[in-house]
């Protein structure tokens, strides 16, 4: 569904990754892993069509993303940004409704269908009781869930999540990952998410993309890539292997 080839990631003065090529198909969940500053967010922005990469192409269903209009792109690809620049002054429901923009057909305000979708999205992240609350009055974790709800209301086929678990407590981390894997497995959505934890990818992700930050990149099935040697090189710190229920997990020594 969403693919890239020959993609180069760079920040001013430094090339982070060269010749990235992979395709995310419907139903797959990709984990993007890498140390701080290794280009994870830059990759998400490039895949989302928000910031064109210096080299390489991103395609959506085979067509180059660069030739796609903004609204058309946002109807297919949804992004959960790592940071939002501005405060939002309206209610949580109004905030989630903004996710309906690429689908909205109404001239003044939102249609009943838009509002139903927004309320369903709030309910999916457990914020149904917060619809009328001011977005600014929400806690950090509640805001993060409201942002996920906005993405759900957008109903994209491909979801790019930049650190979806930040600010979330353990219970909500699991809830969000279950929600996301349900979207992939049951609704055939394609998911790419930046994670910081070596624990979750083994459990929830089918594929992994490792950004080593020095130009090297590896992409493939999660089972092949998520081994101790690779993760130790990736994070530059020794890891302990823990086995439980036949699954391998990694924690810092």
């Amino acid at each position: 569904m969403l693919a890239c080839s020959g993609l180069t990631l760079a920040v001013p003065g430094r090339v982070l990754a060269r010749a990235i090529g992979f395709e995310v198909r419907g139903g797959e969940i990709w984990a993007v892993l890498g140390a701080n500053g290794s280009g994870k967010t830059t990759l998400v922005h490039a895949l989302a069509g928000l910031a064109p990469a210096p080299a390489g192409t991103v395609t959506l269903d085979g067509a180059p993303l660069a030739s796609c209009g903004s609204a058309e792109r946002a109807a297919s690809i949804g992004v959960l940004l790592q940071q939002e620049e501005a405060d939002y002054w309206g209610s949580a429901l109004d905030y989630v409704l903004l996710g309906r923009f690429p689908r909205a057909r109404s001239w003044f305000g939102w249609s009943a269908g838009d509002e139903a979708a927004a309320r369903a999205a709030l309910a999916a992240v457990g914020l149904d009781a917060f619809a009328a609350r001011g977005y600014r009055t929400l806690s950090g974790g509640e805001r993060q869930r409201a942002r996920i709800a906005q993405l759900l209301a957008q109903e994209p086929r491909a979801l790019l999540l930049d650190e979806p678990l930040q600010h979330l407590d353990l219970r909500h981390q699991v809830a969000v990952l279950r929600l996301v894997s349900g979207l992939a497995r049951e609704h055939g959505r394609a998911v790419v998410m930046v994670l910081h934890d070596a624990l979750w990818p083994a459990r929830f992700c089918s594929h992994a993309l490792l950004l080593y930050g020095d130009g090297a990149v590896e992409a493939g099935a999660a089972a092949d890539l998520l081994g101790r040697e690779r993760l130790e090189r990736l994070y530059g710190c020794p890891l302990r292997e823990i086995e439980s229920d036949g699954r391998k997990f990694f924690a810092p020594v």
Binding site: S70, A71, E72, R73, G78, V79, E84, G99
Partner: peptide, 14 residues
Amino acid sequence: ALGELKAHALGLAV
């Protein structure tokens, strides 16, 4: 009002 990047992500020609 949400910021340029966010608006762009939601499909606005900023």
